[in-house]
Write a protein that binds this DNA or RNA. Sequence first.
RNA 1: GGAGAGGUGGCCGAGUGGUUGAAGGCGCACGCUUGGAAAGCGUGUAUACGGGAAACUGUAUCGCGGGUUCGAAUCCCGCUCUCUCCGCCA
Length: 425
Amino acid sequence: MLDAKFVRTQPDLIAAMLKKRHLDLKTLSHISLAEFVTLEQKRLDLLHNLETLKAKRNQAAKDNARKKSQGKTIEIAALKQLTTTIQEIEDNVNTLTKKSKDFLLSLPNLLDAAVPVGRDETFNKIIRTEGPIPEFSFPPKPHFQLGSLTEENKRAASITGARFTLFKGVLAKLARALSQFFLDENIKKGYTELLPATIANEASLTGTAQLPKFANDVFRLSPPHENFYLISTSEIPLVNYHANEILNEDDLPLYYTAYTSCYRSEAGAAGKDTRGLIRLHEFHKTELVQFVHPTASQVQHEKLLSHSEHLLKKLNLPYRVVLLASGDIGFAASKCYDLEVWLPGQNTYREIASCSNCLDFQARRANIRYRTKKKGNLFVHTLNSSGLPIERTMAAILENFQTETGTVHLPAVLHSYMGGCKTLF
RNA sequence: GGAGAGGUGGCCGAGUGGUUGAAGGCGCACGCUUGGAAAGCGUGUAUACGGGAAACUGUAUCGCGGGUUCGAAUCCCGCUCUCUCCGCCA
């Protein structure tokens, strides 16, 4: 969420940001920027009016208290009328305040100056490419044709449905090994491990900005549990871990990591990536979240990126770093790097991690501040990155390290996590 | 699921209708004291929004939302969370 005062005093900057993002305000909100500015003006006028009347009432109540203690009579009729008037104006103010807040919640974050301007992902900027692309003496297969994945996917579909998966034997063990490996490495980098619930409430999803705009992308429980949602990422519990808190300035930065299941409805993705492990309704992911001092967030963003990259490097997976364009970047992010891993079976790079600096956008929504000695309580900056998703990493391992006979050589760092097993299938 | 108790500032804790944004304590900051430290003494110490160049000032906030009242931390209703006991349960 952006600061109300900022939006009403500099609406042109908001308009410019929306244009860069190629977003039409009409699709976000039923009121325009100009209407918001007049709405705010009206709200502040009424608020001033209301506060004057309340001051009058408070003074009268104090006078009455004194009179009563002196045994004098109290004049009530006029004050009764005053209370009625106050209630009417207060109702109006509340209505306007809610409209104003709804509008602010529907606005995406401001963009960093470094974000490439462009309509879609074709404008993303490739920052660097890491690791040699493997060469095969045979046509490399897509991951879903390796091992027992085809068969297990059928079973998963019959148990649940499309876009669900199931692992058996060594693949189940590989998933487990990866989760342990990721958590261990993240802890080494200074992250504190959390194991949160994978259901969160409406306030938490609003805090990280999955709500109100992206309600279609998440699974919601049925009544009477309609205030509960399945988390689409553990960023939700990790960021909201400190919701409504005032942190110590000296404690920043705070690092958290969690391995959880993640649930996504993939509402707009019909027909895309229908086979294999790339796009699932339920997948597993280890996530990285940082709460940092505003002056440090640029530097921390690069550091966070290096933490995600570290995992890919340890696994010897070839990847590239991409800076997302204004039309492709997420709602809450002001600047975002994607890590894209090489998938030989598809002869392309695919997103495997998303590393975002949200500035104070989420902190404002979730009310996460830090205490300063001189400047009062200020909003922290939040950053998040994948560290890493299990299924997409498995797909990358299977495809990059496959052999002509169909076996797969595991990266050395996983051998101990696999109980000494070095080759799959 | 049943019964009960509770939610007050950074923390602990008083307050059951009236100049209470809230006693007292702890913590913290600054000063005095000391060779130095501790103790002691003094002063200060919530947040948000609005107005003001500033000093300062108005409003709101005692879990959340409603209600009663001239006036609510205090009374009433709903919700929520925590704790204790019972039941059930991985």
